[in-house]
Design a binder for these strands. Structure first.
Lengths: 239, 239
DNA sequence: CGTCGTTTTGATCGCAGTCAAACGTCGTGG
DNA sequence: CCACGACGTTTGACTGCGATCAAAACGACG
């Protein structure tokens, strides 16, 4: 079998020795498909697995009293969830498959075994979680202006996709609707549409058919003061 | 010496055996004072300690290009920061003492030693971090209405203070200004003031002199649909 | 007693929400 | 093959929440 996305992500988070690699290969369980719109984990669940997105997009979200939804993070291939299992906690938010997803499930004992026999794996999981947290903090920081928030989110997704692919790209598949973006930014879909039109009319992006094109990603980054440092992408040995 | 706030918090997060307790007592270093307005950690720092607030209030924050500040979380006695040290990462946000704080510093090797010789301590730190994260997600979820956001924040702080004290209270010291609240909620101090007046005029709170009085905390909780589940306060053995 | 920090109130402005409707694409079924 | 409905994008008109600007009141403190 080809190298899993899980293993590849771990090797981006930390420096794995061959020994570490073998340990990870031993524990990674099977993958399963989750259909678009289905919850991977729901509020109240006590996961006994850790999950890794091998392909597709998912989103963390919470529901308000009035039924409206807030997306609090997107999960792209290589991202983890269900770390609640290692702390033996119940989920206080839910995770939904935004597209058809291939999800790897790793049993808690296996994770614990890997962490205890290879501390660097534990460090990788800590890093992934601290990056999650830094990303949410950045969403709070950027929530004061709709146009910049939209642009910033696009930059974030672009940066994460590039990291996953391991190469620079000027266009990528964006398999989410403007309503997803609205739910993520606390805006209405109508307003997100206006902001995206404006950004496009400014010549910074083009989009359609689920594809996003950034003629010049650096221009867009400057436009919204995006600095990818919070994603800790070059941190392998810490930086 | 009396039991440290650190040890007490750990024992609220997980069930500690006497063995665990002894391990923790061995590693906890000294405490130092940090004056109001001083940073405990700043962006770019690579902490080599974990920090525990023994007394006082601190806040995590980030700065925007235009110099405005966003507080992304309050740290009360018993809260941790600098977990970046265990993952060997640089800070992407800062932490400031909001009042005079007594801060415990624990060296990274000591933390690692404690975790490896007592997995339950590691679990406690994971829980604390996942609670941090759940709290930020809740801030995102509640950021769509100023009045409810203010009320919700007050409920959160009340719940956390009660947990720290280990008893129910209807009044507590609130050593932050309305401007801090504004920075935390992404509002202006002027608007926070209006919302707090309104909540007070509705008979739900009284305040002044750095003290907050909730005649009937349950009323306030219902008022803003506050449910403390996300704080995972009763989770000791997982719930 | 004057200054600074904080709270409070008022008047006005503008960003984003709300309501409404048109349009294109796609998949389904008659 | 066409009709239909579901879904997503787009645009316009109007509303309202919270920002902004300004200033007064208040208490703590030197």
């Amino acid at each position: 079998m080809a190298t899993s996305v899980f293993l590849r992500r771990l090797s981006q988070l930390v420096d794995l020795t061959d020994h570490d690699r073998r340990i990870v290969e031993d524990i990674q369980g099977a993958t399963a498909e989750v259909h678009r719109g289905r919850d991977v984990l729901a509020v109240g669940d006590r996961p006994d697995h850790m999950y890794v997105v091998e392909s597709g997009w998912a989103a963390r979200y919470g529901l308000r009293r009035n039924g409206s939804r807030r997306i609090t993070g997107f999960m792209l291939p290589g991202d983890f969830c269900g770390i609640h299992s290692v702390a033996d906690m119940a989920m206080e938010h839910s995770i939904v498959a935004v597209t058809l997803c291939e999800i790897r499930r790793i049993r808690r004992p296996e994770i614990e075994k890997a962490i205890s026999s290879s501390p660097v794996v534990g460090k990788a999981i800590w890093r992934a979680k601290l990056i999650d947290e830094a990303t949410i903090r950045m969403w709070l920081l950027n929530s004061h202006n709709a146009e910049m928030a939209v642009a910033h989110l696009l930059c974030e997704l672009h940066a994460r996709i590039e990291a996953h692919l391991g190469e620079s790209v000027t266009s990528f598949e964006l398999p989410i609707t403007q309503e997803h973006i609205a739910d993520a930014l606390g805006l209405t879909a109508v307003h997100v549409n206006r902001m995206m039109r404006r950004i496009a009319d400014n010549g910074l992006i083009r989009y359609g058919d689920g594809e996003m094109v950034m003629q010049n990603p650096e221009n867009l980054r400057q436009y919204c003061s995006f600095s990818p440092r919070y994603l800790h992408q070059g941190d392998r040995r810490g930086a």
